[in-house]
Computed example of a mutant assay.
Amino acid sequence: MLYMVISGLIVGALLGFVMQRGRFCLTGGFRDMYIAKNNRMFYALLIAIAVQSIGVFALIQFGVFEYTAGSLPLWATIAGSYIFGIGIVLAGGCATGTWYRAGEGLVGSWIALFTYMLSAAMMRTGPLGSFTSSVRSHTVGTDSIADTFGVNVWFFVALLTLIVGIILYRESKKPRRKVVQPKPKKTGLAHQLFERRWHPYFTAVLIGIIAMIAWPVSAATGRVFGLGITTPSANVLQYLVTNDSSFINWGVFLVLGIFAGSFIAAKASNEFRVRVPDAQTCVRSAAGGLLMGFGASIGGGCSIGNGLVMTAMMTWSGWIALLFMILGTWTASYFIFIRPAKLRTAVQGKAATA
């Protein structure tokens, strides 16, 4: 038990610290792909996936632990991930982003986090648990991409690594944007950790390493999986309500560690501030959290569990979920940001010609 507590908190704190300092926000990254035509954060995600994939399959190769992909709940993955993508735009952050932004003092993230935990708990073991099980029981074959094609999984790991290498090469050829760094108040390591802006690709490498480390550390407690947010988040609320210790596992301490690590990073970098949003943002955050919990439960994971971990495991569910999360994010971005802007422009244009 002590190992579970300490190791979960340490891995979570490292992840929360790195994500906060690196501003690793997949919601903003997916949204920027559509609105700003900026793929930088998506490329960073691919880097993290590749780093984790190489590390995890090397560990499996050496017999550190075993993993089986299982079957593919195709339609549940598509529907749940699309709904989750809509939810993260309303909530202002994905599952992990909500945890680490709550550690920065954002009250809106606290609201989204609570409704996310509530919705996920209802969908897992609450009154909608049987609905979730029923929807996810409809499968269409193996979830392993390698098994589908009858080839060694290292072929797809190498292919992803090659694609990431090409992206990095192309990115290195682009003119560098001059980033104005604020005048440093700290020196040495403190400046590097808490003041200097982290490059998203450097952040991605660190996240990939942490995601890889999570596998053997978690497996040592009997939980054979890597980073995961939705089920542990639901378990936190379920334990607080029922006092049932069966809900406590390594993942619970992981998400608590994310909050702690983000808080430490935000305080040390003077970025922690309690910020209370307006009523509209509060309602939107609450609705987003509910959709996140619902979608992640149906889809089998969030932007970390599916988008980072299951993609690295070369599963169909991971890559399909990532695609439909992005599509859901783009849909919500259109109706929340682009369409209202177009309507305002049209109204202003009519007023100008009147």
Rank of each mutant, 00 (worst) to 15 (best):
L2G: 12
M4P: 05
G22V: 09
L26I: 05
L26G: 11
T27Y: 00
G29V: 05
R31T: 10
A36K: 15
A36H: 14
A36D: 15
N38S: 04
M41W: 04
Y43C: 09
A48L: 03
I49H: 04
I49D: 08
V51A: 10
V51E: 02
F57Y: 04
Q61E: 15
F62L: 13
G63V: 02
V64I: 13
E66V: 08
T68F: 14
A69H: 04
A76P: 02
G80P: 00
I83F: 10
I83H: 11
I88R: 00
G93W: 00
R101A: 10
A102F: 03
G103N: 05
W110Y: 12
M117F: 10
M117N: 08
M117I: 11
L118N: 00
R124Y: 15
G129Y: 10
S134P: 07
V135Q: 07
R136Q: 07
T139Q: 03
G141V: 00
G141A: 10
T142A: 09
T142W: 06
F149R: 03
V153H: 04
W154P: 09
V157H: 01
L160Y: 03
V164H: 08
I166S: 08
I167N: 01
Y169A: 14
K174V: 08
P175M: 05
V180M: 12
Q181D: 14
P182G: 11
P182W: 04
T187C: 12
A190P: 09
H191Y: 15
H191K: 15
L193N: 12
H199L: 13
F202E: 14
T203I: 01
V205L: 02
I213R: 03
W215N: 09
P216S: 00
S218W: 07
R223L: 14
F225R: 12
G226R: 02
I229K: 07
L240R: 03
V241H: 12
V241W: 13
T242C: 06
S246C: 05
F247H: 11
L254G: 02
F259R: 07
S262W: 10
I264P: 05
A266G: 03
K267W: 01
N270K: 13
R273W: 06
C282S: 15
G288M: 08
G289C: 00
F294N: 07
G305K: 00
M313Y: 04
M313S: 04
W316R: 00
S317K: 01
S317G: 09
A321T: 08
F324R: 00
W330D: 03
T331V: 01
S333P: 00
I338F: 01
R339E: 11
P340H: 02
A341F: 05
K342V: 14
K342C: 12
R344L: 13
R344D: 15
A346V: 08
K350L: 13
A354F: 13
A354T: 14
